[in-house]
């Protein structure tokens, strides 16, 4: 079994790859998903700890989707939170800066 990830930037090459597999008698299963990150990846991307991200998720400040019992944060939500986090920190530091 092999897998193929296709994104909006992938171009058209995936079409031929799938045809090639079908021609060999294989079946293909296609799933569509919103791109997302794990809490650890969100933490790495923003530069905070995973514990901070989990705390924000549990407080309802970061919207997630569940995959089984795991949280996934859609990329659009990562970007919303990133900018909200900067504004929040700036408000807090504005007096001292």
């Amino acid at each position: 079994m092999s897998s193929l990830e296709i994104t909006p930037e992938s171009g058209d090459a995936w079409d031929d790859v799938i045809r090639e597999h079908l021609a060999r008698g294989e079946h293909a299963r296609v799933t569509f998903e919103v791109p997302s990150l794990t809490p650890a990846q969100v933490a790495e991307s923003i530069g905070v700890s995973r514990a901070t991200i989990m705390r924000r998720i549990l407080a309802g400040e970061i919207r997630t989707e569940r995959r089984g019992n795991r949280h996934r944060v859609p990329l659009s939500e990562v970007e919303r939170f990133r900018h909200a986090y900067v504004r929040e920190m700036a408000a807090d530091l504005a007096i001292d800066f």
């Binding site: 900067v86 700036a90 408000a91 530091l93 504005a94 007096i95």
Partner: peptide, 12 residues
């Protein structure tokens, strides 16, 4: 620009 705007929003 985003950070300058964020700082100015909280400045007294």
């Amino acid at each position: 620009l985003e950070v300058l705007a964020a700082i100015s929003a909280g400045r007294l």
